[in-house]
Design a protein around this nucleic acid. Structure first.
Lengths: 210, 210
DNA sequence: AGGTGTGAATTATTTCACAGCG
DNA sequence: CGCTGTGAAATAATTCACACCT
């Protein structure tokens, strides 16, 4: 299979979210035009995105909402459960641990880790806070698929290195720092400062360039 | 000025964060090669990114850390304070309101809004929770520059429309839904589900495509 | 020598436009 | 018809490679 651009994958997520939305409202079919309008792109883009994975539509008719939903869930790997651990039980880790959206999408938060003895052992959103010293052992024993990193910048890279060594292959980082991983590990970073700076850049340069 | 790609702006943030880091450790000069290595890109990319805004280096020598930091802060619009309001005092809004990183970067959280009477009036991380009914009035009166949206998907677009009408020009959304804004408003979206789906896509298709 | 700044070349992504199928 | 699927064209982003400055 050809390499798929990250931008394409992001859009697939958007399409799926809309399909589920209109599906729940009873829609049975839809078109690339609908998906484009709702997802903020063009119909050609929608069709091109889907074409990387097959042809799911009917010419003259459009797409079956349940069928396309299901195909997208397959493509995105959502037709199964994923075991997630949250590393760092600070403010962000806490908000994430209690976030119901995880379970709805098939993500099972089955461990929260911290190094603070005052937090270890506490129950938190139905999950016990575990000792971060056991992280490597648990990555192997509990077979976490995804680690969500919510620790201060200084600790982030060290923890990532430990987790990678223990075999983790997917990390979602909220640490406000740049992290590097080997090529066979997938990393996504959510960095508040970076997002806000994107806004201030636009606010500062608006008018000058568009 | 030529239109600058979002990817470029993101990298500028990364460069700045590293410059501040090594600057604090006493480094006086650096090179595009250093910035590239630390930022996970190439030296040509670094030089190209900077070249959109001017020439800040000295051939044969590299860049002055304090000077380049300062130029990047200027470019990103960080040489001033920005007034931020947080809309939605749920789990995410709460974590954001208490997040110290805001102030460090010049972002002043000067209002948190919710519609829950049980929350309005409460003190929260030094800020009082205000009535979301007053949002439009306050956008005008308090001149918020940036709104951080942390409400459920269903309420997001309606609130965005209200804020845009009141004159807000920059929104950072954590709502798990696609939002549309007029061309003169800048929107950045952080969507957990989308990030996780990027990971599961990679986990599912890994090996097939790389 | 050493590292920047930048056109030119390459590669990636998006858009166009239309043939073809239901 | 109407709308998909897809090569071809256009545009955007990245990388190359080298002249040029200190």
């Amino acid at each position: 299979m050809k390499r798929i651009a990250e931008s394409t994958v992001r859009r697939l997520s958007i399409y799926l979210s809309f399909l589920e939305d209109i599906g729940a409202r009873g829609a049975l079919t839809t078109s690339s035009d609908d998906l484009a309008r709702l997802g903020g792109t063009t119909s050609a883009q929608v069709r091109k995105d889907l074409s990387f994975f097959g042809s799911f539509g009917k010419r003259g008719l459009g797409y079956s909402v349940p069928e396309l939903s299901s195909r997208l869930r397959e493509i995105l790997g959502l037709e199964r459960q994923w075991r997630v651990c949250i590393v760092g039980a600070g403010k962000i880790g806490s908000a994430l641990a209690r976030y119901a959206g995880f379970a709805e999408r098939g993500f099972m938060v089955s461990g929260v880790y911290d190094s603070d003895p005052g937090k270890i052992g506490k129950q938190w959103g139905g999950v016990t806070v575990l000792d971060i010293a056991d992280l490597e052992r648990d990555i192997v024993a509990r077979q976490y698929h995804i680690a969500v990193l919510a620790v201060p910048a200084e600790e982030a890279q060290v923890l990532v290195d430990r987790m990678v060594k223990a075999g983790i292959k997917a990390i979602l980082s909220f640490a406000p720092t740049q992290i590097t991983v080997p090529a066979d590990v997938t990393l996504r970073t959510v960095n508040m400062a970076m997002e806000l700076e994107g806004l201030t850049f636009a606010l500062t340069n608006r008018g000058a360039d568009r």
